[in-house]
Design a protein around this nucleic acid. Structure first.
Lengths: 170, 170
DNA sequence: GTCTATATAATGATAGAC
DNA sequence: GTCTATCATTATATAGAC
């Protein structure tokens, strides 16, 4: 269920994701949706974001925090990024939810996720002998986000793959 | 007028930019808007995108195509990028319009702009002695777009400034 | 839990007065 | 060119049957 909602919000953004679209995506009536989510669209978006956050934690952040060597943690995490941003045209839910009302509703939660990701990247690469792991981490995350934007422009996954390939070479 | 519309579409996306918001932004009634734009929201968005495209041409692309040395062309263009992405929280209209229906309406136009920008960057840096100017250009554009995403996350311009500063050092 | 039916508000869009 | 008034449609949300 949550997966479908994530997909709708990614594609249409917070304002564009109507209850009709959300209901259709799980093959339920709107009234049934309200039975599961009395809080309406905001609650549905919150669950979608929470689900996506848990997935980020599992696929991307946990590998960064494992007990292995920094280099291996980074490689595992980057492979997790490929999986996290799935689909023919990978889209970041965070980006889609940062427009309009979604920004005021979920902005701080999204910022927290970005901060956690940045810190995880910085810690994993500290051992790698970089001069400024924090700056490297911030730039790497920006590169990934930029690649995702270009993926939507060109309509395929290749920019993301090229970006991750480059990042994996330290 | 077009500037206001651009601002609304940046902030709310195509679906979120209602005719009421658009009309308020220029202090006109909805009916008056339809007098100027019989095609409704789609026509307004088209004019906003055209206006933004002309601004990109003037501030970012034209400097890349001038008769000066490659290095100077790049520096001038990057300064143009700072001006092009104005506001307290810089946002790329392209990114906002690539969600929902906006994607089907303006996707190809947006792709054309990205292609032009990439080619301009590659040509300007060919003289700079890079091994692969095309790849450098693509990556640079992705970095800018990624920085803009993070600008929306953190709520200020610093990621964009840091990104452009780095890109200006070749 | 699911549905149909419905209420209420907002949206995109027009008609017609001035 | 601008407006008020209005229309048809869609949106969010609820009531109540099953």
């Amino acid at each position: 269920m949550a997966e479908r909602f994530v997909s709708v919000f990614k594609t249409y953004g917070y304002e564009g994701a109507s209850l009709s679209l959300l209901a259709d995506s799980v093959e339920l009536s709107k009234a049934s949706l309200y039975h599961h989510f009395p809080g309406g669209k905001e609650q549905i978006a919150a669950q979608a974001l929470a689900h996506s956050g848990a997935r980020l934690q599992r696929l991307v952040l946990a590998p960064l925090a494992s007990a292995k060597a920094g280099q291996e943690r980074l490689q595992l995490s980057l492979r997790g990024v490929t999986e996290y941003y799935d689909g023919d045209v990978p889209v970041c839910l965070m980006n889609s939810l940062l427009l309009g009302e979604g920004r005021t509703l979920f902005g701080s939660q999204i910022k927290a996720a970005v901060d956690a990701w940045t810190k995880g990247l910085a810690r994993a690469t500290t051992e790698a002998g970089l001069s400024n792991p924090e700056a490297w981490a911030r730039q790497s995350l920006e590169q990934i986000q930029g690649a995702l934007v270009i993926c939507r422009v060109v309509g395929n996954r290749s920019p993301l793959h090229a970006c991750l390939e480059k990042l994996s070479h330290i």
